[in-house]
């Protein structure tokens, strides 16, 4: 652990703590209590009423050995994360590069590309039914021109995951806009220098854009990872976890167990396992970051 040794370093440490104070206070007030409470509840059979009864690691044992739905959640969530996250990082960057061009009307395009990310609710749910409808859907229509047979995107347990990845990619605007902010911050002098050195556009991308964008890629990777593990809304509205629990993601499992079945104790158990899973992966990604993330303002 870092220990400030000089007087200046101590002052900096105090200032640092003062700067993070708004968050720290908020954490202590709004986060720590609920987190500890649900940790406690994960060892009880609390059913939303009366006093929680302590059952030790009973919930944890049950979850691993007797609950097929837990494994459905593991399978569906991991499949989604693995399928979606790399695509979102690459496609998001691609779109952001397009959006960073100086062409007429680019502001309008940015708006159009971002809008889907923030359109939610029943309107979107109905919309996806039109897109993914087996016989009459937009997608079936387009694929039909290429001779692809009709696919039951939302009703076939074997393909429903592809539909969810496509739906999530529709809302890629958030990833894109973060990339865009990062691209805007790259000094043009660097491109000019690279051009003088004879670099073509692809080389400029590899030697200038990509290295300077690594902090933003890191951000999108970590937040994307955390968010993808908690996919909820589309599954809640569109499939309710089905068919046959094929989309019974962790987020949905926890919601159903807590807010529909009112088994808060067990829901806390599942939530904590999800929490540990995400935290471990995030730590892993953060551990690798020093190998590939470049920070211009880094201190020794």
């Amino acid at each position: 652990m870092y220990l400030p040794k000089t007087k200046m370093a101590r002052r900096e440490a105090i200032e640092g703590l003062l700067f993070i104070l708004p968050w720290l206070v908020g954490y202590l007030i709004f986060r720590l209590g609920p987190l500890l409470a649900s940790f406690y509840l994960s060892f009880t059979n609390y059913g939303g009423t009366g006093t929680p009864k302590w059952i030790g690691v009973g919930n944890y044992g049950y979850m691993f050995s007797e609950d097929p739905r837990f494994w459905d959640s593991v399978r569906s969530t991991l499949t989604f994360v693995v399928g979606f996250l790399p695509l979102s990082l690459v496609i998001g960057l691609g779109i952001a590069l397009l959006m960073n061009q100086k062409v007429r009307g680019i502001l309008l395009f940015r708006g159009i590309y971002y809008l889907p990310a923030v359109t939610t609710g029943v309107a979107v749910a109905l919309l996806w039914q039109f897109v993914f409808h087996k016989q009459y859907g937009v997608l079936s229509g387009i694929l039909g021109w290429f001779g692809v047979p009709q696919i039951g995107w939302l009703v076939d347990p074997n393909v429903v995951m592809y539909a969810f990845i496509l739906m999530a990619l529709w809302g890629i605007g958030g990833t894109m806009i973060v990339y865009l902010a990062g691209l805007q911050a790259i000094p043009s002098e660097l491109y000019e220098a690279a051009t003088i050195d004879g670099a073509n556009s692809l080389q400029r991308f590899w030697t200038v854009t990509l290295p300077l964008l690594t902090p933003v890629i890191f951000f999108n990777l970590v937040t994307g990872l955390i968010a993808a593990f908690q996919i909820f809304e589309n599954a809640y509205i569109m499939t309710g976890g089905g068919p046959n629990y094929a989309t019974y993601f962790f987020g949905l499992n926890i919601y159903f167990t807590a807010f529909r079945s009112l088994r808060f104790g067990y829901a806390s158990t599942i939530a904590y396992i999800l929490f540990v899973l995400i935290a471990a992966l995030t730590l892993f990604v953060m551990g690798t970051s020093r190998r590939w993330v470049y920070y211009a303002g880094e201190k020794e």
């Binding site: 987190l35 962790f250 939530a271």
Partner: peptide, 14 residues
């Protein structure tokens, strides 16, 4: 890292 962990719990828990 503690700060990041606040993102890792579904809202239903809190």
């Amino acid at each position: 890292f503690v700060m990041l962990t606040t993102l890792m719990m579904p809202a239903w828990v809190v």
